[in-house]
Amino acid sequence: MKKLFILPLTLLLGLLLVACSQDKESDSGKKTVNADKTAEETSKDESLKVDKGLLNVEVTIPASFYEGQDIDKAITEAKEEGIKDAVKNDDGSVTYKMSKSVHKKMMKELKESVLKTVEELKTSDDFTSIKDVTYNKSFTEFTLTVNKGEFENSFDSMASMGLAIVGMYYQLFGGTDPEKFKVTVIFKDESNGEVINTVVYPDDLNNEEK
């Protein structure tokens, strides 16, 4: 996989962790009535949930996303920003362990990032052939409706890269098997619905590098 995936992952993870940290600090200022009784009940309840693994989420990011990067530094920064634990595996991948609340907030931020990317593509002056963008609920497939004449005389196919990046991140942090995550981007002619081109990530990137 190309190195261009690395920087967005580092930045995105950092932004999400900061956002979660800020939310946590805000929540800590709220009321704490009946502290002794509530704390005791909460402690018992949480202990039970932890034993069942209901409060923690583990996410594994493939080694290819860290190519050329200092993984140890990335792990240290993740822990400093609120991730409970991060471990480098033998295959070079990294497994992050976080609370369920942090993970929920991260997924919300990731979804917003995907939707923002979609809206930017629909309104951008850089990809004028793109008239509409639709997607499925899991962000594994995006369909770009384009003006065929304009599309074939431009580099607007590169728009698929941005969608692939945010789509893959959403899947990986959502728990998709690192060996199975894919994003399919379909380009269709706005006049008749004809499929002009289909790109599957990361498969097509890997094939280009061979």
Rank of each mutant, 00 (worst) to 15 (best):
K3G: 03
P8T: 12
L9E: 05
L13H: 13
L15M: 12
L17Q: 14
V18D: 07
A19H: 13
G29Y: 14
K30E: 05
K31W: 05
T32E: 05
A35K: 15
A35H: 14
D36R: 14
S43Q: 10
D45F: 15
D45T: 14
K52P: 06
V57W: 10
I61R: 10
P62G: 12
E67R: 13
G68E: 09
G68C: 08
I71Q: 12
K73R: 11
K79A: 03
E81A: 12
G82P: 00
I83W: 14
K84S: 05
D85Q: 15
D85R: 13
V87I: 13
D90M: 04
S93P: 01
T95C: 04
K100I: 02
S101P: 05
V102A: 14
V102Q: 13
K104C: 01
E109S: 11
E109I: 05
K111T: 00
S113E: 09
S113W: 10
V114Y: 09
V114E: 05
K116R: 14
T117K: 15
E120C: 07
T123L: 01
S124N: 07
D126V: 04
D126E: 08
I130S: 03
Y135I: 03
N136G: 03
F139D: 00
T143K: 12
T145A: 09
V146D: 01
N147P: 07
F151I: 07
E152H: 07
S154C: 08
M158E: 03
G162Q: 02
L163W: 06
V166I: 07
G167R: 15
Y169V: 04
Y170D: 02
F173C: 02
T176M: 00
P178W: 11
K180F: 11
F181M: 03
V183N: 02
I186W: 06
F187G: 06
S191Y: 14
N192H: 13
V195F: 11
V195I: 12
V195L: 03
I196L: 15
I196M: 15
N197A: 13
T198W: 06
V200Y: 00
V200F: 06
Y201R: 03
D203R: 15
N206F: 12
E208D: 15
E209I: 07
